[in-house]
Amino acid sequence: TGYYDVLGVKPDASDNELKKAYRKMALKFHPDKNPDGAEQFKQISQAYEVLSDEKKRQIYDQ
C-alpha cells in the first residue's frame, strides 16, 4: 500500500489536503482512542512525514 492510499488522498493532493487527511486519520487511529490502531497510526504518521516534506515527496514519487 502506498503512502497516498494510507492517507486516502490522490497523488496530486495539495499540502492542505494532505494535512486535513492526516489529521482525520490520526484522530481515528490514535492509540488513545483506538487501542488496536497503534500500527496503523504509525503508518499514517510515516506517510505524512514523507508526503508533507517536499524533498522526501519528490524522491518518493520517482
Rank of each mutant, 00 (worst) to 15 (best):
S14A: 06
L27A: 15
Q58N: 09
L7F: 02
A47G: 03
F29A: 04
D15V: 13
V6T: 05
V6P: 00
K19T: 10
S52L: 11
D5T: 08
V6I: 15
S52D: 03
G2N: 15
R23P: 07
P35C: 09
K24I: 10
K56G: 06
T1V: 14
D32S: 12
E49R: 12
M25A: 10
Y60E: 03
K20C: 14
D5E: 13
A38Y: 11
V9D: 01
N16E: 15
G37V: 06
Y60N: 05
E49Q: 09
P11D: 05
Y22T: 02
P31I: 06
M25G: 07
H30E: 03
A26G: 06
I59C: 12
Q40S: 09
L27Q: 14
F29P: 01
H30M: 07
A21G: 05
L7E: 02
D12N: 11
D53N: 09
L51F: 02
K33N: 14
K24V: 06
S14T: 13
Y60Q: 06
L51D: 01
A38Q: 09
Y22C: 09
L18T: 01
E39D: 12
Q46E: 13
S45C: 14
P11W: 11
S14K: 05
K28W: 05
D36W: 09
Y48W: 11
E17P: 00
G2F: 15
P31R: 03
N34C: 11
Q62N: 10
K33A: 10
A13I: 06
Y48I: 02
L27Y: 09
N16G: 12
G8L: 01
Q58E: 10
D36S: 08
Y4E: 00
I44W: 00
D32R: 07
P31L: 07
D36H: 11
I44Y: 03
G8A: 04
Q40E: 08
Y4Q: 01
D12T: 12
L18W: 01
S52Y: 05
K56N: 07
D61S: 05
E49N: 08
V6L: 15
N16C: 15
Q62C: 12
K33E: 07
L7W: 00
Q43P: 03
D12E: 06
I44T: 01
G2Q: 12
D15F: 15
V50T: 11
Q62L: 12
Y4A: 00
A38M: 09
I59F: 09
D12Y: 07
K19L: 14
R57A: 05
E49V: 05
R23M: 15
K10L: 10
S14Q: 04
K10A: 12
Y3G: 00
L18A: 01
K24Y: 09
Q62R: 12
P31H: 07
A26C: 15
D61A: 04
K42V: 08
V50M: 05
V6K: 02
D32K: 08
A21W: 03
S52C: 12
Q43W: 11
F41I: 04
L27T: 12
